[in-house]
Design a protein around this nucleic acid. Structure first.
Length: 232
DNA sequence: GCGACAG
DNA sequence: ATCTTGTCGC
């Protein structure tokens, strides 16, 4: 159950699903955020179509100005195929390597992917949150599961994302007339707090600054083919 | 069996 | 996610 100790290639989709069901019980949806959120981190992974290398990037921004205070990257190897619902088994290993290089411990982490808006309530954001014991928010660009009404078209508009008769997240419009984002709590916070946090991290783009900047940094790391700690 | 399906 | 050139719009 521990990546560093478990040979990744021994994990089968079936065992991965069993593990998700176990871990999902430990996800906490109560707010455990500090009174004042000082640091918000964004994480993302990049790789080439036929390549075996994965590049993860973590960027830490300070609130409320969103200034970058730390950036790290890490390189890893593909050990699991992409299967909808099992994304964390593919991306978590390299993401964890990147977090090991982080000097700061952010109050919350924004992830490119789902939180509990997942078939077994354990999307990448939730899995990462449990692993790091940090508050995490799932910020996906498209839907994995769940139903929702027509999203509003103005920034700030949101509609509930429901799954099995429960609200597991929100479909949030981050820019006027632009395709909305799928927000769901990963760990240690609730839906409303997740949405509020994303809104407070919004710049002039569709994606909130933390994940947007992490995306760029991961792409840059991939292009350089190296992984080196950086100084802001 | 068929359609859906984060990144 | 990634592959790719131009192109429509604020």
């Amino acid at each position: 159950m521990d990546f560093p100790e478990l040979h990744p290639w021994d994990l089968t989709p079936k065992s991965a699903i069993a593990l998700q069901k176990m871990l999902a019980k430990r996800v906490c949806l109560d707010n455990r955020l500090p009174r004042e959120v000082r640091h918000v981190a964004g994480v993302d992974v990049s790789y080439r179509r036929g390549g075996r290398d994965f590049y993860a990037a973590v960027v830490v921004l300070q609130m409320p100005d969103l200034a970058v205070v730390e950036k790290v990257t890490a390189r890893g190897t593909v050990t699991f195929p992409y299967i909808p619902g099992l994304l964390s088994f593919r991306e978590l290993p390299v993401v964890l390597q990147a977090f090991k290089k982080l000097a700061l411990t952010p109050d919350v982490v924004m992830v490119d992917g789902q939180g509990i808006a997942h078939p077994r309530h354990l999307g990448l954001a939730s899995h990462l949150g449990l692993w790091l014991d940090l508050a995490t928010v799932g910020c996906a660009k498209s839907r994995l599961c769940g139903e929702h009404g027509p999203p509003g078209s103005r920034r700030g508009d949101r509609v509930a994302l429901r799954l099995e008769n429960e609200t597991v997240g929100a479909v949030l419009t981050t820019r006027n007339g632009i395709k909305p984002l799928y927000i769901s709590p990963g760990h240690l916070l609730d839906v409303d707090t997740s949405v509020d946090l994303v809104l407070r991290c919004l710049g002039r783009y569709r994606l909130p600054e933390p994940t947007r900047l992490a995306h760029h940094l991961a792409n840059e790391a991939r292009r350089h083919g190296i992984s080196a700690p950086l100084q802001p």
